[in-house]
């Protein structure tokens, strides 16, 4: 038995995962655009996103959730983000899974109430109830709204700034620094995986016996582990060399502008409208 280089499961998984990580985690293409959300201080953005999230999560009124979702889509548009890209990014995975989770809640077995539709599946008589439907819709909309707010925050803010903004919530400096370093070196290790994979591909030709393929993958995992271990020692030396003495001091240069406070006021008004008037 053999697998063909260029069309096997491991290869597709590696290249797919690398491409996904590079595109979704490491690109700051949207964060560097000149749009609405990009112009706001990251700390303020974190706080206001939290406020929108809480409004969407604490309400039992689906109209409020829809209203917050519409607001997030308007912000997306004003932040110069392609709506098609944004919808694809936010609807795939988590909201779809939540849809599956919500399906049982539609039926009278879990949510009794007024029937709006009924049908038989494999002899099982199922009734879709009104409270079941509204409960499931509320759940799915909450999930999609929350995911949209978080995705909007993450793609309009440079990763490093989001991390630094965490300091606002008294996250210790050492954690902020370790998160930052993880982010930095995961990229480097992804590149190492990519290069190792290319090096293997350039030498093995088109077909490899599946057993050999397993060995190659195992070797490259071991070599990656060894490289990251060695790098860990070297990075620590580089930190010591520049005066690190066990307690890192992290650079902080955030300054709020009048526009950031206006933004805060705007979000408060949006949330109050949602809670009081809808």
């Amino acid at each position: 038995m053999a697998f063909t280089i260029g069309n096997n499961f491991i290869e597709r998984s590696i290249t797919g995962a690398i491409a996904f990580l590079k595109e979704s985690v490491f690109t700051d293409e949207y964060a560097s655009r000149d749009g609405l959300m990009q112009s706001i201080d990251p700390r303020m953005k974190l706080v206001t996103s939290g406020m929108l999230l809480l409004t969407a999560l604490l309400t039992k009124n689906i109209a409020v959730v829809l209203y917050i979702y519409s607001v997030s889509l308007i912000f997306t548009y004003l932040s110069k983000i392609n709506i098609g890209f944004f919808l694809k990014r936010t609807w795939v995975f988590i909201p779809l899974f939540s849809l599956f989770i919500a399906v049982p809640a539609l039926f009278n077995i879990f949510t009794p109430g007024e029937a709006i539709a009924n049908f038989n599946i494999f002899g099982l008589h199922l009734i879709v109830t009104r409270p079941g439907l509204s409960g499931a819709l509320l759940f799915v909309m909450r999930v999609i709204t929350s995911v949209s707010i978080v995705v909007l925050l993450s793609i309009t803010t440079r990763h490093s700034e989001t991390l630094k903004a965490l300091r606002l919530f008294k996250v210790p400096q050492i954690f902020v620094m370790i998160f930052g370093m993880c982010y930095r070196y995961i990229y480097l290790l992804i590149e190492a995986v990519e290069n190792t994979y290319l090096a293997i591909r350039s030498r093995v030709g088109r077909q490899v016996h599946y057993k050999k393929g397993q060995q190659v993958v195992a070797w490259s995992m071991a070599s990656l582990w060894q490289r990251s271990y060695r790098m860990n020692e070297e990075v620590y030396s580089a930190m010591l060399s520049r005066g690190y003495a066990g307690e890192p001091v992290v650079f902080n240069d955030f300054k709020t502008k009048p526009w950031d406070w206006m933004w805060l006021l705007l979000i408060i008004i949006i949330c109050v409208i949602g809670v009081r008037f809808i």
Binding site: G180, R184, E234, S241, R242, P248
Partner: peptide
Amino acid sequence: GFVFQNPDVQLFCPTVKEDILFGPLQLK
């Protein structure tokens, strides 16, 4: 001051500015 052979080892902060300022911040 020491400049390492592999710059990836020496540049461990999220941004270039933070990397340059790492030393002076630690040394107060």
